[in-house]
Each structure stands twice: as structure tokens, then as C-alpha cells.
Amino acid sequence: MTQDRKFPIGGPILEAKNISLSFGGVNAITDSSFAVLQHEIKAIIGPNGAGKSSMLNCINGIYSPQVGSISFKGKKLQKISPNVIAQMGISRTFQNLALFKRMSVLDNILVGRRLHLDANFLQIAFQLPKARTEERKNREKCEELIDFLEIRGIRDTPVGKLPYGLQKKVELGRALATEAQVLLLDEPMAGMNVEEKREMCRFILKVNDEIGTTMVLIEHDMGVVMDISDSVVVLDYGKIIADGSPDEVRSNQQVIDAYLGVAHD
């Protein structure tokens, strides 16, 4: 990371305070607190089942933690549905791909522009000037994004027919299209080869660099995590065992134990 960033890391934008989430008797997250700073890339790592995805689902409003609170820019996100949280400026991708399979790549990305389109259905039905101009403007934005992600060749293909790696890219595109301030990326590079991972990293860094989007990403590839993130949170059995810069986390004994599988006491 270079020192002269266009968007230097600022104060906390997203804060989780003492959150606990359980499903019946299973505790997914226990009393966890951490903060995401503005314009940073924060990685959440941990073994399988550590509660990483649950954490993102809590931030995004799909789950609501039984205890504790999450606040975004000082506002509490409690019992708010995902669409309202999206309006506040948090967007995401999903671990197991949640694309609109029967829609084309362009249409998928256009759905990401949802919050930038506010003509109602009558204005659209009658193609009033407002509906037409906003549609044209947003289509242009999406075309730019398609060029940025270098996926022009598959623009009109239904995403269900694309290979996995490309689908992951389209999903990133859809999340980027929202122009949200915070992006939650749930394993954006899972199942990719080295080449594809490198490309994905380039996109993530470029977006963070050029428009200053704050990113929270879950990733298993340690090389990637250490390379691109500004700070790392380590979860194990639903608890945060380390939170700090990549170097600090790497040398943390608890983290090493968690990854090497030392017995818990």
C-alpha cells in the first residue's frame, strides 16, 4: 500500500458492538466488536463455520443479531430490511452467487443501478422524458462498468450460462454499479485460479483507489488477504480472536493456533 492515497483512511464508518447471533442453540457469533474505517479494505478471515458470512448477513440486514448493535455512519442498523440498508449505502456480493440467472449480464448490472432510478411504473409505461433520460444515463454507466470489468463480450448473455469465474465478476459488477459507500464482498475469489484472482484483486484495489469505496471482504487465500487488505479481523468459533494490520495478525499466536488446529481450552 502506498502512502499517498487519493482517499486516505478515515474514522470508523461501520461499527459492530458486542453482537451475538444464534440459531436455536447454535451460536454463530458471540459478543463480537470491530470497526471498519472509511476507505479501507478490511478482510474477515477464519476457518469454515467461524461466522464470517453470518457477520456480513448481520451488517446487510438479512439476519438481525439478538444482542448488540451495528451502526453505519452513526446510525443504528436495527431491524432494518436489506433494501433500506442498501439505500443507506451498503451493498454486497454473495458467497454462493446470487445473480439473476435468466437476465443478461447488462440487465443484472442495471439492477445494481436500482437506487439511481426513480421513475415510477407509469412514467416508464408511458416512456415519459424523465424515465427515458434516467434509463439512458444509467445504461451508459453500466456500459462503462462493463468496459472496466472487461466483460463486453458477454454483455447480452444470460448469466446462468456463464462459467463460475465470470459470474463472480458480474456479481462484483452489480455490486459496483450501486456506487455504495461500503461493499461487502463474500468470498469474491472463491473457486478462481491464480490468474483470475489476480485480476479480481486488481479491480478491487482500483475501485478502492479511484472512488474510495470501503470494502469488507471475506477471503480464504492468505496471500490475497495479506496483499490487498489494510486490516484483518480473524474469527474463530464466532469470536474475534485478532483484529489489526496484516502483519500483526500474521504473527498472532492465537491466529496461528486457530489455523493449525490447536485444541481449544
Binding site: 438479512i62 436489506p82 433494501n83 454473495f94 446470487a98 445473480l99 439473476f100 440467472k101 436500482r114 452489480r174
Partner: peptide, 10 residues
């Protein structure tokens, strides 16, 4: 096609 993703897009 995917209601949870639709909701997350606003």
C-alpha cells in the same frame, strides 16, 4: 430470479 439479492440491491 433471486429475491435476497434483489433486496440487497435496494
Amino acid at each position: 430470479d433471486m429475491d435476497i439479492a434483489a433486496e440487497s440491491m435496494g
